[in-house]
Amino acid sequence: MSTGTIATRTEFAHSAETSHAWAQTMAMSKRSIIAIVRQPALIIPSLIFPLFFAALGASSFNRATQLPGFPKVDSFLALTLAASVLQGVIFGSVTGGAALAVDIETGFFDRLLASPTSRVSILIGRLAGNALFGSVEALFFTLVMIPFGVNIRSGPAGIAVITLAGGLIGLSIGGFMAAMALRTGSAEAVQGVFPLLFVSMFFSSAFFPRETMQGIYRTIANYNPLSHLYEGMRDLVITGWSFDAVLKSLLIPVGIGFASIPLALLALRRRLRAV
């Protein structure tokens, strides 16, 4: 009887702890999203920048679509939608990582640690904010490009998959950025990673098809998961609905997340040990 009572109390305490951790995670997510909304100067670039590059590519490379190796498309712009989603979400993730680093720099992170907040909720809350923002960005890019002649051949279901993929990319890339922020505690260092991330997209088929590449570049692009993620989303736009495209769009960011989120948790543990 007494053992049963203790077990019940333990279960209750555990359940209450879980409930608190959940509430704290939600509160941290809410804070992260409010922080994004309150600072339009930070989010507008991540929305404008990819559209700018899409317009730039359409004007610079439209004549290249006649070259052998390019899929049949009405314009180069249709090829760039998926690349815009990738760029935008990566940019947004850097902003999210920098915001976490700013929390560390300003001492807010230490105040959170001094409070009875679940440690993991600090990180998960931030990543959840990234994921939501990623989804919003993906939907935004899709809706903006449609009036400019981009026809999403997979229809509304394809748009839903692209939106969901945007959230998953935000979560997975956000994990790397959070790891960097927690490791260095410097917003400057996190910001400095952006160009590298951006350029890493060029080692994929996000801008030109793999069929037009040669040698080592083609080999790297073949192995780069971003190529397959991009091609999944691209096929939803220019070819139509296919199970293969959906799987590529959703499972690849999940796979990246399996690497990045444990890395972020490890960085969090190291920082907590150092405090």
Binding site: P195, V199, F208, M213, I216, Y217
Partner: peptide, 21 residues
Amino acid sequence: FPAMLMPIFQSVAFSGTFFAI
């Protein structure tokens, strides 16, 4: 160093990606 590595990656990546141009 990211700011120094970026142009290296950019030169290399653009040359490979946009080779067909």
